[in-house]
Amino acid sequence: MLKVEAIDAAYGRVQVLRGLSITARAGEILCLLGRNGAGKTTLLKAIMGLVPVTGGGITLDGTEITALPAHRIPRLGIGYIPQGRRLFGELTVAENIEIGLMAGRQDRETRARVLALFPRLGERLGQRADTLSGGEQQMLATARALCLGPKLLLLDEPTEGLQPSMIALIREVVREMRARGVAVVLVEQRVDAVLEVADRVVFIENGRTALDTAPEELRTNPALLHRHVGV
């Protein structure tokens, strides 16, 4: 599915990713862990074409996407839920969903399917996105990405600042996506959340892959967590 091979990426002169590699398979939840500034968010942005990749390569189902213009990458079936949600705040819930549908050239059926996952959004279709509660905003950010009909879903700290019931809902949706064969790449700070859903965990340090392991390994060997993320 997704293959990131030894990529370098930088913001101007600040090198963030240094030969980082990961793979994500269909129907698998890959969790990325690492300290602040390790390069997790930059990796997702690099996959989306939002940060220029200066070395290495990214392929999706064997198709090279490294040099594609950013707006062509979602069309390949990559849904992105950015850190901080980044909703189009002045647009309504319905319009935000429409943006997702347009991105994936999806129809009303997809819209109905996604709204069935988040019935509360269906009650607020005419409401401006920036007037929603934090939890509802995260639902909308997730719904917008799902409306694209993704085969690869990138989530950047989706549970940040959410109450437990909302975290549980997001977790359920992520599992549902896995069951449908979607490859999920999840960036998380909360280790407990990672251990509950991950099929595989990759630690990122200083823009490099430090460790690629199974969650069971982390449960039996907490020293690994302490070494890589300081918990």
């Binding site: 950015p82 980044r86 189009f88 319009e95 429409e98 991105a103």
Partner: peptide
């Protein structure tokens, strides 16, 4: 809708297939 989305957040617009 595309124009308004681009005005609000051009980076996120790109991430949703809008050719900014």
């Amino acid at each position: 809708l595309v124009l308004r989305a681009t005005r609000i957040d051009s980076e996120t617009a790109r991430a949703f297939a809008i050719p900014v």
